[in-house]
């Protein structure tokens, strides 16, 4: 067991920003995706675990806060010297002599940025700069809080690909905070879903998906024809422009045949975190039965 949270409560003034009643444990080597909309308490959770905000309750762990690495939402550095010097100081190493660091710099294509000052870097380069140094810390538990915030779609995708690539064969535990579902699908094997400071769901991605969505979901455009065509199948809550159909193995053939027969475009998924999250929230608020 790497870390256990028990009865955690964080208040800002009179407002409860985060309340976790049921115990939550992070195991060694797990990749936990923390998801929720703005104000869900994601960053507050990270700050509490790092001892940066006062909380009530317990965080049981052998790790000291300084043994955890973190990429905060905003990270600042001095701009009185090139980032190469800042990096070498923070990591207490020389880029020339450190092969692993060179590998990371190459992976993130950060080499040309090294002579620049921090305030001259673009948003994506700034994120990469911190990511490289956080990775080099090789902490047992690393937090990535909104690591792609402020980046365009392509840069986000690239950064997440690089992160996934780097951690593929590593054993470090990760907590990845995001409100982009697609980012977590690449990296997380467990999901902690927060809403308005409360835990909606926590568990392995596959298990949560089966619990709230069934074996698979079929996602198609929301139009009258598709609504009529799929009215026999169990509909899940989805964004307004989409129809999400819950599908168990027994009935999947029928649905598939129907969609192909009527030439309907669709997407099939057995790990769609967005649909799963929406339905977990609905179930939590008692609006939808569990499957």
């Amino acid at each position: 067991m790497l870390l256990t949270i028990r009865q955690l409560q964080v208040k800002y003034g009179d407002q409860t920003a985060l309340q976790i009643d049921q115990p939550i444990s992070f195991e060694r080597g797990e990749r936990i995706g923390v998801i929720g909309s703005n104000g869900a308490g994601k960053t507050t959770l990270v700050k509490a675990l790092l001892g940066l905000v006062e909380y009530q309750g317990k965080v049981i762990t052998q790790l000291r806060p300084e043994q955890m690495a973190v990429h905060m939402q905003t990270n600042s550095y001095i701009s009185t010297m090139p980032v190469r010097c800042v990096m070498e100081m923070i990591l207490n190493t020389s880029i020339k002599e450190n092969k692993e660091l060179q590998k990371l710099i190459d992976l993130f294509e950060f080499g040309p940025c090294l002579p620049k000052r921090y305030n001259a870097l673009s948003g994506g380069q700034k994120q990469k700069f911190t990511v490289i140094m956080v990775m080099m810390q090789k902490a047992e538990l690393t937090f990535y809080d909104e690591v792609t915030s402020g980046l365009d779609f392509e840069s986000r995708q690239k950064l997440m690909d690089k992160l996934a690539q780097w951690y593929r064969d590593k054993e470090e535990s990760l907590v990845i905070v995001s409100h982009y579902y697609a980012e977590l699908e690449q990296l997380a094997d467990k999901i902690l879903l927060l809403d308005q400071g409360r835990v909606v769901a926590y568990g392995k991605t596959g298990e949560l998906f089966r619990k709230y969505c069934g074996d698979a979901v079929y996602i198609l455009d929301n139009n009258p024809e598709n609504q009529e065509l799929t009215c026999r199948f169990q509909r899940l809550k989805a964004p307004d422009h989409l129809i999400a159909l819950s599908c168990h193995k027994q009935e999947e053939g029928k649905l598939l045949a129907l969609l192909v027969e009527h030439n309907v475009n669709f997407k099939r998924s057995n790990s769609d975190i967005e649909i799963m999250s929406i339905n977990a929230k609905e179930a939590k608020h008692g609006k939808m039965p569990l499957l």
Binding site: L52, V70, M72, I90
Partner: peptide
């Protein structure tokens, strides 16, 4: 200026006391 930009906090998070 460093404090206002939370640079010392960032350094603490990198393991500097």
């Amino acid at each position: 200026q460093e404090v206002e930009n939370e640079i010392p906090l960032r350094m603490h998070l990198y393991g500097y006391c």
